[in-house]
């Protein structure tokens, strides 16, 4: 699986600089609007059924008054070796040759096995038929399928934007330029904590950022080989040798 990465033109991925994240949730809202994610009203959160393809987890660190809020945005990690893929009985989720973990809504039967297999808990089940207020009728993104009840959904790295970008590039007979394709969350991020790009291009911003000493991936012991790379937080008030947490 990992070997294929070199052969193909694009290997889409994201770098998240946790040091820059302010926890403003702009990415969450942008994603909600771009991808026709149903509104998360109070009862959705109370029943723990809220859908956020990208979520900003907040952790408190330290004892009062010396408390720090830590933020980490988590979205589908588009693992090269994804645990959600082999368990799906109907191939509703598979890995495409551009490094995306793809969800095929039409095939999904809603066993929710993929969601149990996912260690990052970034797969969401439509417990109800999604409804929007009447005022939102014309706000839905026509490029994105509205998912029906009973199926799984998750971050697609805004696959509709990737497709459009690649199509435009192919029409002009060139490759996609770095920064040409932006996902909704990277576009909305005010501090550029989220950067999207092509890992196969050595000169792309994500490839350079990935070489940073601060890089890590989430839950590496599970060997999922994610396409989302995190850059660790820098603590100015800590000495270099002191360990985290």
């Amino acid at each position: 699986m990992t070997l294929q990465r070199e052969k193909r033109d694009y290997s889409w991925g994201m770098v998240v600089d946790v040091d820059k994240c302010t926890g403003c949730q702009a990415c969450v809202l942008a994603c909600q609007a771009e991808n026709n994610v149903p509104l998360n009203l109070q009862d959705r959160f109370e029943r723990a059924r809220a859908m956020q393809w990208i979520r900003v987890e907040r952790y408190w660190e330290g004892e009062f008054p010396d408390v720090k809020a830590r933020f980490i945005p988590i979205m589908c990690q588009h693992c090269e070796n994804a645990p959600c893929e082999p368990v799906c009985p109907v191939f509703a989720t598979y890995h495409n040759n551009e490094g995306l973990n793809v969800q095929v809504y039409n095939r999904c039967v809603g066993t929710r096995y993929c969601a149990n297999g996912c260690p990052y808990i970034v797969r969401f089940f439509n417990y109800w038929e999604p409804v929007w207020p009447e005022a939102f009728r014309n706000h839905l993104n026509p490029d994105v399928t509205v998912r029906s009840r009973g199926i799984m959904e998750k971050c697609s790295f805004c696959v509709q934007r990737i497709r459009r970008g690649v199509r435009n590039a192919e029409r002009d007979g060139r490759k996609v330029v770095d920064g040409e394709i932006q996902t909704a969350c990277t576009q909305a991020c005010p501090t550029d904590a989220l950067v999207f790009g092509n890992f196969n291009d050595e000169d792309s911003k994500v490839s350079k950022m990935k070489k940073d000493d601060r890089h890590y991936t989430l839950l590496p012991h599970l060997a999922t080989d994610p396409n989302v790379v995190y850059l660790a937080q820098i603590d100015t008030d800590r000495s270099a040798g002191e360990s985290h947490g």
């Binding site: 029943r47 723990a48 059924r49 809220a50 809603g110 929710r112 969601a115 149990n116 808990i121 969401f124 089940f125 439509n126 417990y127 109800w128 038929e129 009840r149 009973g150």
Partner: peptide
């Protein structure tokens, strides 16, 4: 729909 159950995220089963 399965909303009538008590299932949530991540307790999908």
């Amino acid at each position: 729909g399965l909303g009538v159950t008590g299932l949530s995220r991540p307790v999908y089963w």
